[in-house]
Structures are given as C-alpha cells and as structure tokens.
C-alpha cells in the first residue's frame, strides 16, 4: 500500500521518463504531446503562478495529480481513481430536433469526471484524499496553509469567475460549462451508425473510435461520445486541450460529414 503522495511521485517519474519535459512543460512533445504539468489543468502550478487572491482561493496541495486522482479510496463511478468529492448534479442536457441519437440524461462517468470541476458545483480543490495519509480536509496542507476560500468554476463573486473575466486574469468563463449542457456539444450518446444517421463517418473501432491507444485522435468510450472524445485533459498543446489540431475543422470532420 503506497500512500497517495508516493503514488503521485511515481506517476511524476513516469511523466519525466516518457516525456522528458518536466523541467520545460510548455515545450510541445513530439511523441505524445505536451504535459499537464504547468498547464491550466495543473492547479498547483496555477496556484504558484497566481496572484495573492489566487492563493486565497484554493488550496495548494503541492501535487499536480491529486486534484483529480488518488491511488486509493477514489470514486470509480466518476473516473479513474477519481479523487474529487463530487455528487453529480442534475443536468440540463443537449437536445436537438436535428439529432438522430439522444444524449444521456446523466452524462457518463468519463464525462462526469470533467464536470466535477467544470459544472461549477463544487470547489476546484474539493477532493477526497489530500496528500498525506487518507482523508485530510482540514489541513494543514503540504507546505502551505489552508486557503481562505474554496472557489468553484462559475461566474460571479466567491468563484473563479470573480477574477477570470479577461482582466485581471484570462477569461475562463467559457470553460464554466455549468449544469446546463444544452448549449454544449452532446455527450454520452452512442455514436450513430450509418443507418441511424448517414451523415457521420464510421470509426475504425466502433468502441474506441479513431484514437485507439493513441491520445492523438478522436476517441469513443464504449462506443459513446464523451468529453475526452475531443479533449485530452493532460495535453495542453492543442488549445483548448484538444486531441488534435482543428485545422480546416479537421477535428469536427473526423466525425461529421457536413
């Protein structure tokens, strides 16, 4: 039984070994792409780069992966070794008269993982297992004191959106998906077969899509479209965390015949 901290250390080593970029996380990779380290998904890095107010807004756990993952005691119903203290909200899902398939009323686990931050219902630092041994939600935190506030991704006061409106910090409002997903690309719906909707390309693998083992192309999850079908949460190289460049809308055209 390794502690969460030690597990994370091992993972960190793995990144270093495979990408060799830990010291220069912003340099694009030629193999698997960039690293989460130093990206906007690296909340530790965000905290460290942030303003005084930023440091008051979320806990710095001193680790990168811990904001999402834990080696033990995670909630697998939400995602792989998922460490976020999250009870899915009720979502308003996308519907369209032009759609021939139907989005699930509750997003699938793979997408819920993303939504555990991006729906704005819980603080970005609301995790199950803090660094150290087991649940530790009261601090003191690794290397630092507890933040005064615990901001969630949403607009307005006492939320990330208090600052992230373009000034003083970059505008992050477009990443606050909220629980209203009706204005977002549908997720968690089966990828349509040609008979269901001939205006979709047929993936090479009906269950896994185009990406297969590679993170560099569109993936399906058990034959369904989920947030990570397009996004690679760990790779910031193709803004915004896309699996591949959308040159000529290539990402869109992977699926859509339009």
């Amino acid at each position: 039984m390794v502690s969460g901290k030690r597990w994370l250390s091992m993972l960190f080593v793995l990144f270093v070994l495979t990408a060799g970029r830990v010291l220069d996380p912003l340099t694009p990779s030629t193999v698997f792409g960039g690293s989460i380290v130093g990206s906007r998904h690296d909340l530790k890095s965000d905290w460290e780069k942030g303003s005084v107010l930023m440091k008051e807004s979320l806990n710095n756990y001193g680790e990168v992966c811990v904001y999402c993952h834990t080696p033990h005691g995670g909630d697998e119903s939400l995602g792989p070794l998922w460490n976020r203290d999250y009870t899915p909200a009720s979502f308003n899902v996308y519907t369209s008269p032009t759609m021939d398939t139907t989005a699930a009323g509750i997003p699938g686990a793979v997408s819920l993982a993303c939504l555990s931050c991006h729906d704005g219902t819980i603080a970005v630092d609301s995790i199950i297992n803090a660094p150290g041994s087991g649940p530790n939600l009261t601090g003191p935190w690794y290397g630092q004191g507890a933040a005064t506030y615990h901001f969630a991704m949403k607009e307005g006061a006492n939320a990330c959106g208090e600052c992230h409106v373009g000034s003083p910090a970059h505008d992050a409002r477009h990443t606050y998906l909220t629980t209203d997903l009706s204005d977002d690309h549908p997720i968690s719906m089966p990828y349509p077969s040609p008979s269901e909707d001939p205006q979709f390309n047929t993936p090479p693998d009906a269950m896994k899509g185009w990406g297969g083992a590679s993170p560099g192309d569109v993936k399906l999850y058990a034959g369904k479209v989920e947030c990570p079908s397009c996004h690679n949460v760990h790779d910031p190289d193709v803004v915004p965390f896309l699996r591949k460049a959308n040159t000529g809308s290539a990402l869109c055209y992977t699926c859509h015949i339009k």
Partner: peptide, 21 residues
C-alpha cells in the same frame, strides 16, 4: 482561420437555443 465549422458551431456555450451548437 482555416477552420470551417467555427463560423457557425461551437462545442460549448452555444448561443441560439434550438440551433445546433
């Protein structure tokens, strides 16, 4: 830009209800 779909569609924060994204 060389993106095509972007002039009408976005995966997130779509603007006009009922219109696709």
């Amino acid at each position: 830009t060389d993106e095509v779909c972007v002039f009408c569609h976005t995966p997130h924060f779509a603007s006009i209800a009922e219109a696709p994204l």
